[in-house]
Amino acid sequence: MKHLKRFYLGLMLLFMYAPIAILIVYSFNASKSRANWTGFTFDWYIALFNDPEISKALYNTLTIAVLSSAISAVIGTAAAVGIDAMRGFKKTLVMAVTNIPVVNPDIVTGVSLMILYIAVFRFFPSLKLGYGTLLLSHVAFNTSYIILSVLPKLRQMDDNLYEAALDLGASPMAGFFKVILPEILPGIVTGALLAFTMSLDDFVVSFFTTGSGVSNLSILIYSMARRGVNPKINALSTIMFMAVLLLLYVINRTDTTKSKSKKLISEGDK
């Protein structure tokens, strides 16, 4: 029974990792698109770095992820603070609307935003689908994730603190920055990280809301993959997989050092 369990887990892990392992192995294969091993090469990596399309797509992906998570962090945090102060039907309604981008299938979000942009462009014929609409769309779905991560932190917070600050003469602005913001910062950071990864990984919404000539990595991979196996994508997959592993390692390390230092502090308190 014990062996059977181990065998089954091993089999499932093989299923999860074999495709990734095969991509990594073939990224070093000299032959193009053949499964036969014909020799070791770095050519595909060199070709990858010399491909202007790929570096442009990488630039778009990263800048849109950074900008959209930063913009939606600002809009979403202000929104969450406001929504937290709302009561009754108004709050229910706003929360229902906020949940729409999260539960809606991506493809519906994508096509509905595309219809919106093109409807607006009828009045402004000089505008086109492209980087701007891509960024707006990413802010559109990311803001909901920020609101949903910040609201629980606001609920945990003691409302009286903010009102005490106002009673003691703080302006609403000062009250926000000195009292509310430090309390909800962990929620904002979690939300922004979530938004950042959602934006990095997004394909469907981007696919419908971008214009000709502007791609992110997902769109580029899709158009390359539709033409079959491409060793340059293999090389790209390898690099991205290594980046993910490195990122997860760094996150885990900072987590353990944090909990260690917390432990030290609590022990010091005793």
Partner: peptide, 28 residues
Amino acid sequence: SAEGQRARMAAPYLLWAFIFIIVPIILI
């Protein structure tokens, strides 16, 4: 009034949500 003031912080988002969440669904 303090709550009212705080609720007003959501105003930019309400406009945003109307344009980017509600209008697209109405259009579809």
